[in-house]
């Protein structure tokens, strides 16, 4: 009886702690850029804010809809665009990481189907210290479409 109570207490404390961590890392406005038909590598953007007094490390991003998700950074050197892969990205204490077009981006490989604007995609973002946060990314179309008649 006592053991069970202790276990329950421990579990509750654990859940509360997880939640408090979750509150101290905010994922804001995560979105996936809709791609033309047939394209198998997409990019996602958004902001991760670290409210904690120490740095956190972004280690992994997952989604059931993609074969894999990598962290990349577009770098233009002397007019030539190249992409630099990052295994992890450190977000400074009380700092933030911005994924923007032409900068850091999440690279999404081989979607199971074509994603169109308006769809909501579940993603899991993992940090060091076993913090894992679920987020919904919206698929958006940024291009201005010209209708030809």
């Amino acid at each position: 009886m006592n053991k069970a109570r202790l276990f329950l207490f421990g579990l509750l404390t654990f859940i509360v702690q997880l939640n408090s961590y979750a509150n101290e890392i905010t994922l804001s406005d995560i979105w996936i850029n809709e791609a033309p038909p047939g394209v198998s590598i997409l990019a996602a953007y958004g902001t991760i804010i670290n409210h904690i007094d120490k740095p956190i490390i972004l280690t992994n991003i997952n989604s059931e809809l993609f074969e894999k998700i990598e962290l990349h950074e577009s770098v233009i050197y002397d007019g030539v665009a190249t992409m630099k892969q990052h295994e992890t990205i450190t977000i400074p204490a009380n700092g933030q990481l911005e994924f923007t077009q032409g900068g850091y981006h999440m690279m999404l490989f081989s979607p199971v189907k074509r994603l169109v604007a308006g769809e909501q995609i579940n993603m899991t973002v993992d940090f060091d210290n076993s913090i894992s946060i679920s987020v919904i990314a919206e698929v958006r179309r940024t291009t201005h479409h010209h209708h030809h008649h």
Partner: peptide
């Protein structure tokens, strides 16, 4: 190239915007 996820679609979108 079409496997380019960031710079290419972004630039193509800009071109789509200014083309008219």
């Amino acid at each position: 190239y079409t496997h380019c996820p960031d710079i290419c679609p972004v630039t193509m979108s800009l071109l789509g915007q200014i083309y008219p």
